[in-house]
């Protein structure tokens, strides 16, 4: 077994690093294999990966459309704009 493979099989730090790099970018074919071997034997990292994916999904499904400014803030904004215009 190569050293790289031996290192990753038991190394959750390295495995979770590769999980993140794979999701947000890309990893090499060798790293993909290393990760696969690790995940086959490590249920904790498998759970980590599911939860990490969930976190990404929570972000992308965020809808800002529900956010509205309160009236008081809008009134103060309007006043500030009027004041600026009158300055000139």
């Amino acid at each position: 077994m190569t050293n790289a493979l031996k290192n990753i099989i038991y190394n959750c730090n390295q495995a979770t690093f590769l999980i993140e790099k794979k999701m947000a970018g890309k990893i090499s074919a060798a790293q993909t294999l290393q990760l696969k071997v690790h995940l086959a034997g490590c249920s904790v990292c498998k759970l980590y990966m599911q939860q990490s994916l969930l976190i990404n999904r929570l972000f992308s499904s965020f809808s800002a459309a529900d956010f509205k400014l309160d009236e008081a803030f809008k009134i103060s904004l309007t006043k500030k704009i009027e004041r600026e215009i009158n300055k000139n």
Binding site: F62, S63, A64, A65, F67, K68, L69, F73, K74, L77, T78, I81, E82, I85
Partner: peptide, 27 residues
């Protein structure tokens, strides 16, 4: 400019919120 707040404030706020997720900073 006098119509900006009425026309665009909510839109810009939602735009900022979608990127910042922080009400005070977005405002």
């Amino acid at each position: 400019p006098l119509t900006w707040v009425v026309n665009y404030a909510d839109y810009l706020y939602a735009f900022a919120m979608s990127r910042l997720r922080n009400e005070a900073v977005a405002k």
